[in-house]
Nucleic acid binder design. Structure first.
Length: 574
DNA sequence: GCCGTTTTCGGCCCGACTGTTTTCAGTCG
């Protein structure tokens, strides 16, 4: 059997080809390879199946040549063309361009003039003071290279959305009150709510940009000012994250917000659309080529309307087909941030949570929920204080008492039961049958071989007592890859068995992922969104799960906890 | 290397900032 490669792995090979071609200063091909790679990366269907049907060339950006290369990758797991490029350019040269301030040109120059092969070589050359001697480099660029290498070692350059959004919102709040500020918003990947972000982007409008920049660069948490201009300044926070602030004139705010929200690919597609109409789109406006008259209206909605499109939510702006769908009027009405009636996955101090049942219930009511499902861990999950059948019976009494007492919120008794190696829950069927809701999750043996792991989860899906599969892919962002699972098989079974797949909102999980959701919905899967809160303050992290669902094009109808309690109960019985 | 309700050839998004330069290339988003 030939090696089975995921879409992501195929795309990674094409991206590498693009980078190496760019280093070789080949024109236009890098863009072509990147576009093909992006199309494959965001494809809902398995690329192998597309290839089997002989439809590779129907994919956007894939022509005869790239199709042949994709076939080679799928057949052999490798690409001869890439191997030749690597041999030609030098195997580690591509990594050099991961350092800020170094692009393809400088990477090649460093390689050719100093024989640098990798990041270790780059660091050594910088420390030895050799880089400043190169034409086009100086002392400052040498220092920046060293700083960049350090930053990369510490963080690998990505940060969790759930950790950075509060930081960004705090900065935003302090800038928003400045008298010089007219409008201000988050932009970039943070506004699109990507699961990890590379930096924080903020956009503001002001008649006095210098005043705003002065306040921004003087924020107490700033450890370094990377640059300060009239329209753009960049700072680095103690955490190592970079924050960019752009300040534009009032009249340019909405086009600038659209522009700086991205994604880059979405914007390129929009700009092409503008060009087709004889206009040019930039952060400064939508302009008629000849007259330079600005056609953009006074909101982002106006801008999309001018381009013949309905408004496209920031979470959808990834050039994953949203522009085509908008044009056809088939863009889904994605779930809203206030669209949930309850939280289906929270913990209490009965297992590893911090707060009592009562505290969790009251906090849920404060959020406007009608119900909350307490899903503490079961006994074998390796987590201290996991619940035994006896404990579950005691907990039920307390929950019943709470439900008699509390108005405006219904507490459901659920469980997050642990799945054994063969997919059997670690509680007897009779115990599971008495609970309102059963989440089944894998917490150990995550590195199981693909077939075994898939069978394990499928067994849980076919268990009559299981309502939801918790954090199905088992990934930890920036730390642990998803388990080796046949996701299409799981999606198919979950849809057939009416078992919901969870979108876990914990900032380091966001599992299922946005692209998983998008793929699963094609199978008719129903989803549940849970905060996985272990304290009442964490209930608000549900917004990251909702964001993930939105990025996965999910509508309220596809998410079981958008239903009021009666609707939820109907589904649980069904 | 891809693509085309003007094109099967000749295009392929746009502008600011940095660090190095005495007028601009490279990088970045």
């Amino acid at each position: 059997m030939a090696a089975v490669l995921s879409n992501r792995e195929v795309a990674a090979i094409l991206y590498e080809v693009a980078d190496l071609l760019e280093i070789k200063d080949v024109k236009f091909k890098p863009v072509a390879y990147r576009r093909a790679a992006h199309g494959i990366e965001t494809l809902a269907e398995d690329i192998g199946r597309v290839a089997e049907r002989g439809e590779l060339e129907d994919l956007p950006g894939v022509g005869t040549h790239i199709a042949t290369k994709i076939k080679e990758i799928l057949d052999t797991g490798k690409l001869g063309y890439l191997e030749r490029l690597k041999a030609e350019v030098g195997p580690g040269v591509r990594d050099l361009a991961d350092i800020g301030g170094i692009g393809p040109k400088k990477a090649m120059l460093l390689h050719q003039k100093l024989g640098i092969e990798n990041l270790a070589g780059l660091e050594a050359a910088a420390r030895a003071g050799k880089i400043r001697e190169l034409a086009g480099f100086g002392e400052k660029s040498e220092q920046n290279i060293l700083t960049g290498i350090t930053a990369r070692k510490e963080t690998a350059g990505r940060y969790l959305l759930g950790r950075m959004l509060p930081v960004a919102e705090s900065i935003l709040a302090r800038l928003a009150v400045l008298p010089a500020i007219r409008k201000i918003s988050l932009a970039g990947s943070l506004r699109r709510m990507r699961e990890t972000i590379g930096d924080i982007d903020i956009l503001a409008s002001s008649p006095e940009p210098d005043t705003v920049m002065a306040a921004f660069t003087a924020l107490p948490e700033v450890t370094r000012v990377l640059g300060r201009g009239h329209t753009k300044s960049s700072i680095v926070l103690e955490s190592g994250v970079q924050v960019d602030l752009r300040v534009v004139e009032e009249g340019q705010y909405w086009t600038a917000l659209q522009y700086f929200t991205g994604s880059k690919d979405h914007n390129i597609a929009l700009r092409r659309r503008a060009l087709e109409r004889g206009w040019s789109l930039s952060e400064y406006g939508l302009k008629e080529e000849e007259t330079q008259k600005n056609l953009a209206g006074s909101t982002e909605e106006d801008l999309y309307r001018m381009l013949g499109l309905p408004y496209i939510e920031p979470e959808l702006r990834e050039n994953r087909g949203e522009i085509e769908a908008a044009e056809k009027g088939t863009l889904p009405a994605i779930v809203t941030y206030h669209g949930l009636q309850g939280d289906l996955h929270v913990h209490s101090d009965w297992s590893d949570g911090k707060d009592s049942l009562r505290a969790m219930a009251l906090a849920a009511r404060d959020r406007g929920y009608g119900y909350i499902a307490i899903c503490d861990h079961s006994r074998s999950s390796g987590i201290d204080r996991g619940l035994t059948p006896e404990k579950i019976a005691q907990q039920r009494k307390e929950i019943e008492q709470l439900n008699r007492e509390l108005k405006g919120i219904v507490v459901l008794q659920g469980i997050e039961c642990n799945l054994g190696p063969d997919g059997t829950p670690d509680l007897p069927p009779a115990v599971l049958g008495d609970l309102d809701l059963v989440i089944a999750s894998v917490h150990d043996g995550l590195r199981m071989h693909g077939g075994e792991m898939t069978r394990r989860v499928l067994a849980a899906i076919h268990n009559d007592h299981v309502d939801i599969i918790g954090h199905p892919a088992g990934r930890i962002l920036l730390r642990r890859d998803p388990s080796d699972l046949d996701l299409p098989a799981i999606f198919e079974a979950a849809a057939a068995q009416h078992v919901a797949l969870e979108v876990n909102s914990s900032p380091s999980r966001l599992d299922l992922s946005d692209t998983n959701c998008r793929q699963a919905k094609e199978y008719g899967v129903i989803f549940s969104i849970g905060s996985d809160a272990h304290a009442k303050e964490e209930l608000q992290e549900i917004r990251f799960g909702i964001a993930t669902a939105r990025r996965g094009w999910l509508t309220a109808g596809e998410i079981v906890n958008t239903r009021p309690l009666t609707g939820l109960r109907d589904w649980l019985r069904g």
